[in-house]
Design a protein around this nucleic acid. Structure first.
Lengths: 203, 203
DNA sequence: AAAATTTGTCCGAAATTTCGGGAATTTTTA
DNA sequence: TAAAAATTCCCGAAATTTCGGACAAATTTT
């Protein structure tokens, strides 16, 4: 599970207090004093969540939220808000903020919210990874001649076997259940050289 | 996104109030009056989350939580708790509850928490689906003779082509770039009959 | 109902693949 | 360094695959 929490808070005291709270919970706070400083950390595939004050000198929490959404639509942003700003925070949620915390808030409450956000972020990133993987393995071949597709597959099988056998043709041939000579025949057809598959680790 | 919310609440008034709140938000409440009644709805792959009172005549929220976890480790459970029971709720969170709400709670707050839980549940289920799919397509063949693996693949290609061609061998053959007769040869080898691929829609 | 098209099967020649044997060369092992 | 093993290539016979032609049966179109 992810642990990074990008903290955007101009009040130095509060900021370090939050950092301490998170560190006690084995999270990884990344403290910043405002939007400008935080900006470069906010990027697609950020492996964590954002915890931002809503009211700051230069920019407000909405700036953070909007910027985060341009970088990654599914990057959870939790806003810290004073009691009088709760309606603002609710509006922020409608615009995609993940949650808000009313200042001052109990450490427990903050940790609970962060855990939920981090869990969601982890799930989102896992989802993306698995989907990418699926797309790759699925992009096998959907067009082309039967023989072209079969040759593509045969090449892959042979290369995989050679790779597993550390480039040793004899071993690969046995694994594939064919005589060495036959494998050489096939390799010749596909312009595969065994050397390319030797020494998978180091050199 | 999922919308089901299994409500476990013995107080009929509060229960119907919650139902109304959820319906206004286009969610799908499933009201029950206690653990016994809810039990049969709690199952693996439930497409929603659980919202349960923590203090009830027959069983308490922990019973619900534990039972849910035996059915599905990743089924979010939100607990409704009186003010005096907040410490209990925090303990429940450590045991895997997703969140808790202090009674009486503002409809907005409840909806926000439910949305987060439903979003997480949706992500979890998507994750499972994609992983299953990946496992299937990945279980191609990692062992066996070269010819065995190639034949398996050839069979799949042919069946896919026939399926696309509505079981018409001539069309499938053209798509595969081979003469019709050759495809018949191959089909004979694999015991594939074209009829099996006809009429994919209706009859 | 007749005509036209498609299906499914068989045949046989040409092309390709398989595979054992052999042998020169390189790499690894002892 | 000597021996053992593996690589890479060539050959040729046996087996398999490809593919066009032909044709009866089944289906669809007209």
């Amino acid at each position: 599970m992810f642990k990074k929490v990008l903290i955007i808070e101009d009040d130095a005291m509060l900021r370090s207090s939050i950092v301490q709270t998170l560190e006690l919970e084995d999270l990884e706070p990344i403290p910043t004093n405002g939007f400008t400083q935080a900006r470069r950390s906010i990027r697609h595939n950020f492996r964590g969540v954002i915890l931002s004050d809503i009211k700051m000198p230069d920019h407000d929490g909405f700036d953070v939220l909007r910027f985060a959404q341009t970088k990654d639509e599914e990057l959870p942003v939790i806003l810290l808000t004073g009691h009088s700003d709760v309606p603002t925070a609710k509006r922020a949620i409608k615009e995609g903020a993940y949650d808000y915390l009313e200042k001052p808030c109990a450490p427990d409450t903050m940790i609970e919210a962060l855990h939920r956000a981090l869990k969601q972020r982890t799930l989102i990133m896992e989802n993306r990874e698995v989907r990418d993987e699926l797309e790759q393995t699925n992009s096998d071949q959907t067009e082309g001649t039967l023989s072209e597709r079969l040759e593509m597959h045969e090449r892959r099988i042979i290369e995989e076997a050679l790779s597993d056998a550390d480039g040793k043709v004899a071993i690969a041939a046995e694994a594939l259940g064919i005589p060495r000579n036959t494998l050489y025949d096939r390799m010749g057809k596909f312009n595969i050289v065994a050397k390319a598959f030797r020494k998978p680790t180091g050199n």
